[in-house]
Amino acid sequence: MSQSIGASATTALAVANPWAVVPSLGNLDAYITAVNRLPMLTPEEELEFARKLKEHNDLEAAGKLVLSHLRLVVSVSRKYLGYGLPHGDLIQEGNIGLMKAVKRFDPDQGVRLVSYALHWIKAEIHEYILKNWRMVKVATTKAQRKLFFNLRSMKQGFKDDEGAQTHRDTLTDAQIDVMARELNVKREEVVEMETRMSGGDVMLDPGPTDDGDEGFGPIAYLADAAHEPTAVLEGQQRDTMATDGIAAALEQLDARSRRIVEERWLKVNDDGSGGMTLHELAAEYGVSAERIRQIESAAMKKMKKALAAYA
Protein backbone atom coordinates (compact mmCIF):
# COMPACT_ATOMS: atom_id res chain seq x y z
CA MET A 1 0.00 0.00 0.00
CA SER A 2 2.77 2.43 0.95
CA GLN A 3 4.66 1.62 -2.28
CA SER A 4 1.52 2.41 -4.31
CA ILE A 5 1.09 5.74 -2.52
CA GLY A 6 4.77 6.56 -3.10
CA ALA A 7 4.51 5.76 -6.80
CA SER A 8 1.39 7.93 -7.12
CA ALA A 9 3.12 10.80 -5.33
CA THR A 10 6.15 10.49 -7.62
CA THR A 11 3.89 10.55 -10.70
CA ALA A 12 1.97 13.59 -9.42
CA LEU A 13 5.21 15.44 -8.65
CA ALA A 14 6.59 14.65 -12.10
CA VAL A 15 3.47 16.14 -13.70
CA ALA A 16 3.55 19.28 -11.54
CA ASN A 17 7.32 19.83 -11.78
CA PRO A 18 9.12 17.37 -14.07
CA TRP A 19 12.58 18.26 -12.74
CA ALA A 20 11.84 18.08 -9.01
CA VAL A 21 12.04 14.29 -8.68
CA VAL A 22 15.66 14.02 -9.84
CA PRO A 23 18.21 14.95 -7.16
CA SER A 24 20.62 17.65 -8.33
CA LEU A 25 23.33 16.47 -5.93
CA GLY A 26 24.06 13.22 -4.12
CA ASN A 27 25.51 9.83 -4.84
CA LEU A 28 25.02 7.96 -8.08
CA ASP A 29 22.85 5.21 -6.58
CA ALA A 30 20.35 7.82 -5.37
CA TYR A 31 20.19 9.31 -8.86
CA ILE A 32 19.66 5.93 -10.55
CA THR A 33 16.96 5.00 -8.02
CA ALA A 34 15.21 8.31 -8.66
CA VAL A 35 15.17 8.06 -12.45
CA ASN A 36 13.96 4.45 -12.34
CA ARG A 37 10.91 5.64 -10.38
CA LEU A 38 9.97 8.22 -12.99
CA PRO A 39 6.78 7.34 -14.90
CA MET A 40 7.13 6.23 -18.50
CA LEU A 41 5.07 7.94 -21.18
CA THR A 42 2.43 6.22 -23.28
CA PRO A 43 2.78 6.60 -27.09
CA GLU A 44 -0.07 9.11 -27.01
CA GLU A 45 1.55 11.19 -24.26
CA GLU A 46 4.91 11.11 -26.02
CA LEU A 47 3.31 12.32 -29.26
CA GLU A 48 1.44 15.08 -27.43
CA PHE A 49 4.55 16.41 -25.66
CA ALA A 50 6.67 16.14 -28.81
CA ARG A 51 4.14 18.22 -30.75
CA LYS A 52 4.02 20.82 -27.98
CA LEU A 53 7.81 21.12 -28.10
CA LYS A 54 7.99 21.27 -31.88
CA GLU A 55 5.09 23.65 -32.45
CA HIS A 56 5.19 25.83 -29.32
CA ASN A 57 8.72 25.33 -27.94
CA ASP A 58 7.15 24.07 -24.70
CA LEU A 59 10.09 23.49 -22.33
CA GLU A 60 7.91 21.70 -19.77
CA ALA A 61 6.96 19.17 -22.43
CA ALA A 62 10.65 18.80 -23.32
CA GLY A 63 11.43 18.15 -19.67
CA LYS A 64 8.87 15.36 -19.48
CA LEU A 65 10.27 13.75 -22.61
CA VAL A 66 13.79 13.87 -21.19
CA LEU A 67 12.84 12.62 -17.73
CA SER A 68 10.88 9.65 -19.03
CA HIS A 69 13.99 8.44 -20.92
CA LEU A 70 16.69 9.00 -18.27
CA ARG A 71 16.51 5.31 -17.35
CA LEU A 72 17.44 4.51 -20.96
CA VAL A 73 20.66 6.51 -20.58
CA VAL A 74 21.52 4.61 -17.39
CA SER A 75 20.93 1.30 -19.18
CA VAL A 76 23.06 2.24 -22.20
CA SER A 77 25.89 3.69 -20.11
CA ARG A 78 26.34 0.42 -18.16
CA LYS A 79 27.67 -1.23 -21.32
CA TYR A 80 30.69 1.09 -21.31
CA LEU A 81 31.86 0.57 -17.74
CA GLY A 82 34.84 -1.55 -18.83
CA TYR A 83 36.83 1.41 -20.15
CA GLY A 84 37.97 2.85 -16.83
CA LEU A 85 35.74 5.92 -16.98
CA PRO A 86 33.39 7.01 -14.15
CA HIS A 87 29.82 5.79 -14.51
CA GLY A 88 28.51 9.21 -13.54
CA ASP A 89 30.45 10.85 -16.37
CA LEU A 90 29.14 8.32 -18.87
CA ILE A 91 25.57 9.00 -17.73
CA GLN A 92 26.17 12.74 -17.94
CA GLU A 93 27.41 12.48 -21.52
CA GLY A 94 24.50 10.20 -22.41
CA ASN A 95 22.06 12.72 -20.95
CA ILE A 96 23.51 15.37 -23.24
CA GLY A 97 22.85 13.08 -26.18
CA LEU A 98 19.30 12.48 -24.95
CA MET A 99 18.59 16.22 -24.75
CA LYS A 100 19.95 16.69 -28.28
CA ALA A 101 17.66 13.90 -29.46
CA VAL A 102 14.61 15.44 -27.79
CA LYS A 103 15.40 18.81 -29.38
CA ARG A 104 15.65 17.27 -32.86
CA PHE A 105 12.87 14.67 -32.53
CA ASP A 106 10.16 14.89 -35.18
CA PRO A 107 6.88 13.28 -34.01
CA ASP A 108 5.65 13.07 -37.60
CA GLN A 109 8.31 10.52 -38.61
CA GLY A 110 6.33 7.62 -37.09
CA VAL A 111 9.08 6.33 -34.77
CA ARG A 112 9.29 6.26 -30.98
CA LEU A 113 11.67 8.60 -29.22
CA VAL A 114 13.49 5.64 -27.63
CA SER A 115 14.63 4.42 -31.05
CA TYR A 116 15.67 7.88 -32.20
CA ALA A 117 17.44 8.79 -28.96
CA LEU A 118 19.63 5.67 -28.85
CA HIS A 119 21.82 7.02 -31.67
CA TRP A 120 22.39 10.35 -29.95
CA ILE A 121 23.03 8.81 -26.53
CA LYS A 122 25.63 6.37 -27.85
CA ALA A 123 27.22 9.06 -30.05
CA GLU A 124 27.88 11.31 -27.05
CA ILE A 125 29.25 8.43 -24.96
CA HIS A 126 31.49 7.31 -27.83
CA GLU A 127 32.82 10.84 -28.23
CA TYR A 128 33.63 11.00 -24.52
CA ILE A 129 35.50 7.66 -24.68
CA LEU A 130 37.41 8.77 -27.78
CA LYS A 131 38.58 11.96 -26.07
CA ASN A 132 39.75 10.09 -22.99
CA TRP A 133 40.99 6.87 -24.62
CA ARG A 134 44.73 7.66 -24.68
CA MET A 135 44.77 8.70 -21.02
CA VAL A 136 42.92 5.54 -20.01
CA LYS A 137 45.13 3.22 -22.05
CA VAL A 138 48.49 4.53 -20.80
CA ALA A 139 47.96 4.71 -17.04
CA THR A 140 44.82 3.75 -15.19
CA THR A 141 46.03 3.44 -11.58
CA LYS A 142 48.02 5.69 -9.26
CA ALA A 143 50.99 3.30 -9.30
CA GLN A 144 50.99 3.17 -13.10
CA ARG A 145 50.86 6.97 -13.38
CA LYS A 146 53.84 7.28 -11.00
CA LEU A 147 55.82 4.73 -13.01
CA PHE A 148 54.81 6.45 -16.24
CA PHE A 149 56.20 9.86 -15.27
CA ASN A 150 59.37 8.48 -13.65
CA LEU A 151 59.99 6.26 -16.63
CA ARG A 152 59.74 9.17 -19.04
CA SER A 153 62.19 11.34 -17.08
CA MET A 154 64.70 8.49 -16.67
CA LYS A 155 64.48 7.52 -20.31
CA GLN A 156 65.30 11.06 -21.39
CA GLY A 157 68.38 11.03 -19.13
CA PHE A 158 69.97 7.91 -20.60
CA LYS A 159 73.12 8.53 -22.62
CA ASP A 160 74.74 6.30 -25.16
CA ASP A 161 78.34 5.13 -25.04
CA GLU A 162 79.58 8.34 -26.67
CA GLY A 163 77.92 10.60 -24.11
CA ALA A 164 75.16 11.89 -26.37
CA GLN A 165 71.53 11.54 -25.30
CA THR A 166 69.98 8.38 -26.73
CA HIS A 167 67.16 8.53 -29.25
CA ARG A 168 66.30 4.84 -29.32
CA ASP A 169 62.61 4.05 -29.56
CA THR A 170 62.93 1.16 -27.09
CA LEU A 171 64.99 0.46 -24.00
CA THR A 172 67.84 -2.02 -23.88
CA ASP A 173 67.85 -4.89 -21.37
CA ALA A 174 70.52 -3.09 -19.29
CA GLN A 175 68.46 0.11 -19.18
CA ILE A 176 65.35 -1.84 -18.11
CA ASP A 177 67.33 -3.45 -15.27
CA VAL A 178 68.60 -0.06 -14.11
CA MET A 179 65.11 1.46 -14.14
CA ALA A 180 63.55 -1.47 -12.29
CA ARG A 181 66.24 -1.26 -9.61
CA GLU A 182 66.09 2.52 -9.14
CA LEU A 183 62.28 2.70 -9.21
CA ASN A 184 61.93 -0.37 -6.98
CA VAL A 185 59.47 -2.13 -9.30
CA LYS A 186 59.47 -5.42 -11.14
CA ARG A 187 61.29 -5.67 -14.45
CA GLU A 188 58.01 -6.82 -16.10
CA GLU A 189 56.26 -3.64 -14.97
CA VAL A 190 58.89 -1.50 -16.67
CA VAL A 191 58.55 -3.49 -19.89
CA GLU A 192 54.75 -3.22 -19.82
CA MET A 193 54.76 0.53 -19.28
CA GLU A 194 57.43 1.03 -21.94
CA THR A 195 55.24 -0.91 -24.37
CA ARG A 196 52.29 1.33 -23.56
CA MET A 197 54.37 4.48 -23.97
CA SER A 198 55.91 3.44 -27.28
CA GLY A 199 52.59 2.28 -28.76
CA GLY A 200 50.82 4.64 -31.11
CA ASP A 201 47.31 5.96 -30.68
CA VAL A 202 44.56 3.74 -32.03
CA MET A 203 41.98 5.44 -34.21
CA LEU A 204 38.74 4.08 -32.78
CA ASP A 205 36.60 5.72 -35.44
CA PRO A 206 38.56 5.82 -38.74
CA GLY A 207 35.75 7.52 -40.66
CA PRO A 208 35.26 7.19 -44.44
CA THR A 209 37.99 5.54 -46.52
CA ASP A 210 39.47 6.96 -49.74
CA ASP A 211 36.85 5.17 -51.85
CA GLY A 212 33.96 6.64 -49.83
CA ASP A 213 33.13 3.54 -47.80
CA GLU A 214 32.82 3.69 -44.03
CA GLY A 215 36.01 2.57 -42.29
CA PHE A 216 35.87 -0.17 -39.66
CA GLY A 217 37.47 0.42 -36.29
CA PRO A 218 37.16 -0.57 -32.61
CA ILE A 219 34.27 1.88 -32.18
CA ALA A 220 32.12 -0.67 -34.03
CA TYR A 221 32.41 -3.16 -31.19
CA LEU A 222 32.74 -0.86 -28.16
CA ALA A 223 29.33 -1.84 -26.84
CA ASP A 224 27.97 -5.28 -26.03
CA ALA A 225 25.19 -5.74 -28.58
CA ALA A 226 23.63 -8.51 -26.51
CA HIS A 227 22.51 -5.91 -23.94
CA GLU A 228 21.35 -3.28 -26.39
CA PRO A 229 17.98 -2.07 -25.02
CA THR A 230 16.26 -2.38 -28.39
CA ALA A 231 17.73 -5.87 -28.94
CA VAL A 232 16.49 -6.96 -25.51
CA LEU A 233 13.01 -5.65 -26.29
CA GLU A 234 13.01 -7.35 -29.68
CA GLY A 235 14.09 -10.62 -28.05
CA GLN A 236 11.30 -10.39 -25.51
CA GLN A 237 8.85 -9.66 -28.30
CA ARG A 238 10.01 -12.71 -30.27
CA ASP A 239 9.68 -14.91 -27.19
CA THR A 240 6.15 -13.66 -26.57
CA MET A 241 5.18 -14.24 -30.18
CA ALA A 242 6.69 -17.75 -30.15
CA THR A 243 4.65 -18.73 -27.08
CA ASP A 244 1.51 -16.69 -26.41
CA GLY A 245 1.24 -15.46 -30.00
CA ILE A 246 1.43 -18.88 -31.63
CA ALA A 247 -0.97 -20.37 -29.07
CA ALA A 248 -3.52 -17.61 -29.66
CA ALA A 249 -3.19 -17.92 -33.45
CA LEU A 250 -3.75 -21.70 -33.33
CA GLU A 251 -6.94 -21.11 -31.34
CA GLN A 252 -8.36 -19.32 -34.38
CA LEU A 253 -8.18 -22.49 -36.53
CA ASP A 254 -10.58 -25.38 -36.87
CA ALA A 255 -9.41 -28.81 -35.70
CA ARG A 256 -8.30 -30.04 -39.14
CA SER A 257 -6.42 -26.85 -40.08
CA ARG A 258 -4.74 -26.75 -36.68
CA ARG A 259 -3.54 -30.36 -36.95
CA ILE A 260 -2.19 -29.78 -40.46
CA VAL A 261 -0.21 -26.72 -39.31
CA GLU A 262 1.10 -28.50 -36.22
CA GLU A 263 2.18 -31.57 -38.22
CA ARG A 264 3.78 -29.53 -40.97
CA TRP A 265 5.49 -26.75 -38.94
CA LEU A 266 5.48 -27.34 -35.21
CA LYS A 267 6.03 -31.04 -34.63
CA VAL A 268 9.56 -32.36 -34.02
CA ASN A 269 10.14 -36.05 -33.36
CA ASP A 270 12.78 -37.46 -31.03
CA ASP A 271 15.01 -38.29 -33.99
CA GLY A 272 14.91 -34.67 -35.17
CA SER A 273 12.55 -35.29 -38.07
CA GLY A 274 9.38 -33.27 -38.59
CA GLY A 275 5.73 -34.27 -38.74
CA MET A 276 3.64 -35.75 -41.54
CA THR A 277 4.08 -34.89 -45.20
CA LEU A 278 1.38 -33.49 -47.51
CA HIS A 279 0.78 -36.92 -48.99
CA GLU A 280 0.52 -38.61 -45.59
CA LEU A 281 -2.03 -36.07 -44.44
CA ALA A 282 -3.91 -36.34 -47.75
CA ALA A 283 -4.19 -40.11 -47.32
CA GLU A 284 -5.47 -39.70 -43.75
CA TYR A 285 -8.18 -37.18 -44.66
CA GLY A 286 -9.05 -38.76 -48.02
CA VAL A 287 -8.28 -35.70 -50.13
CA SER A 288 -5.53 -34.71 -52.55
CA ALA A 289 -2.16 -33.37 -51.49
CA GLU A 290 -3.01 -30.14 -53.27
CA ARG A 291 -6.09 -29.74 -51.09
CA ILE A 292 -3.99 -30.18 -47.96
CA ARG A 293 -1.62 -27.51 -49.26
CA GLN A 294 -4.55 -25.12 -49.84
CA ILE A 295 -5.88 -25.71 -46.31
CA GLU A 296 -2.39 -25.13 -44.92
CA SER A 297 -1.99 -21.89 -46.91
CA ALA A 298 -5.35 -20.54 -45.73
CA ALA A 299 -4.54 -21.44 -42.13
CA MET A 300 -1.17 -19.68 -42.28
CA LYS A 301 -2.81 -16.49 -43.57
CA LYS A 302 -5.35 -16.62 -40.75
CA MET A 303 -2.55 -17.12 -38.18
CA LYS A 304 -0.60 -14.22 -39.65
CA LYS A 305 -3.50 -11.87 -39.02
CA ALA A 306 -3.82 -13.12 -35.44
CA LEU A 307 -0.07 -12.66 -34.84
CA ALA A 308 -0.24 -9.04 -36.02
CA ALA A 309 -1.49 -8.10 -32.55
CA TYR A 310 1.84 -9.31 -31.08
CA ALA A 311 4.09 -7.58 -33.64
Rank of each mutant, 00 (worst) to 15 (best):
V261D: 05
R291W: 05
G245F: 12
A249L: 09
E194I: 09
D270C: 07
A283N: 07
D239F: 13
T277H: 03
E188M: 09
D271Y: 06
E262N: 01
G245M: 11
P206R: 04
T277C: 10
I292D: 03
S288G: 14
I260Q: 04
K267C: 04
T195A: 10
E280P: 00
A225Q: 07
R238N: 13
I292E: 00
Q165I: 14
T277E: 02
D270Q: 13
A223T: 10
R264I: 08
G272Y: 07
D244L: 13
K302Y: 00
I295Q: 03
A226W: 08
T195E: 11
E182T: 15
S257D: 08
E284P: 00
A223M: 11
S198F: 06
R181P: 01
R187Q: 00
T240P: 05
S297Y: 03
E290H: 11
D254A: 02
S297N: 08
D169Q: 12
I176N: 00
T230D: 15
A164Q: 15
F216A: 03
A223P: 01
V287Q: 02
G200I: 08
Q237T: 15
A220F: 09
V191K: 12
M241Q: 12
M303I: 04
A164H: 12
D224S: 15
S273A: 10
G245E: 10
L266W: 07
Q175I: 14
A231P: 06
A248G: 01
T240E: 05
M197N: 10
S297Q: 13
H279N: 07
M179Y: 08
R256M: 06
G207Q: 09
